[in-house]
């Protein structure tokens, strides 16, 4: 599904060159639940940006869904994002002047989906994230947890294969954070590949693929799913 081969990404900060990703090799399978953790400046955001095709590596190859996407032009990158990747951001990134429904419709507006179908699908997604009665509210009329649920509905409305979440609970209180995480894990349970950046070790513990980043280098640890009690019966011993 996702394969990094010798990915490097450098940034120039003043006169200094910062190696955000140093020769990273990693693969993530379809349907996997991966968490990326690490101190700030360790390169985890860069990793997520490169994964999400928002940033292109300076060298190395990135295989996504069986295709080399390391050297695509801007519009091809956009098309690939549209088709394969959903984003959830720490700061939600909802458009303030649009209602929840319109925000969820936005990816389909860009993809030229017909208005009637758009409305139906946005409805479905908002129902799925428990916001049936908040569809016509604007973001400033919603709580933080509700905003993030709108953002999640928007991220999955195009039926992506991979969901990238950058500290999705970082701006939420514990209860809202738990609800959001439940929704994300539910989506994973339905087969979506979930990759999230987090500072929260508890969330990190729940993932199956644990990617710890330090100074642009990944230390990967694959675990079985024994952390989720409801999965205990299926977990290999």
């Amino acid at each position: 599904m996702i394969r990094f081969e010798n990915i490097c990404r450098d940034f120039k900060v003043g006169d200094e060159v910062v190696h955000a990703l140093k020769d990273v090799n990693q693969h993530i399978e379809i349907g996997e639940y991966a968490s990326i953790m690490g101190p700030s400046g360790s390169g985890k955001s860069t990793l997520l940006n490169v994964l999400g095709l928002l940033d292109t590596p300076d060298s190395g190859r990135y295989w996504l869904n069986g295709r080399d996407v390391s050297q695509l032009a801007d519009d091809d990158l956009a098309a690939t994002r549209q088709e394969i990747i959903g984003f959830v951001f720490q700061s939600f990134h909802l458009i303030q002047r649009m209602t929840a429904l319109e925000n969820v419709e936005l990816p389909m507006v860009l993809a030229r989906v017909a208005p009637a179908e758009r409305r139906d699908r946005a409805h479905q997604m908002l129902s799925k994230t428990g916001l049936e009665d908040r569809m016509n509210h604007r973001p400033d009329q919603l709580s933080g947890g509700q905003r993030q649920r709108v953002a999640i509905a928007r991220s999955i409305v195009m039926e992506p294969k991979v969901l990238l979440a950058d500290e999705p609970t970082g701006n939420l209180d514990t209860q809202s954070g738990k609800e959001v995480l439940d929704i994300l894990e539910g989506l994973h349970a339905d087969g979506l590949t979930l990759i999230l950046v987090t500072h929260d070790p508890v969330i990190g513990q729940r993932s199956h693929l644990h990617l710890r980043m330090i100074d642009g280098v990944i230390q990967a640890e694959r675990r079985h799913q024994q952390r989720r009690p409801e999965d205990d019966s299926h977990a290999p011993v």
Binding site: G52, D75, A78, A79, Q82, F87, H93, I95, L106, L110
Partner: peptide, 15 residues
């Protein structure tokens, strides 16, 4: 930020 979002959601340059 809105432009960044549109790009993340797959907006083409021309759009």
């Amino acid at each position: 930020a809105e432009i960044g979002l549109l790009k993340a959601l797959g907006a083409r340059r021309s759009q």
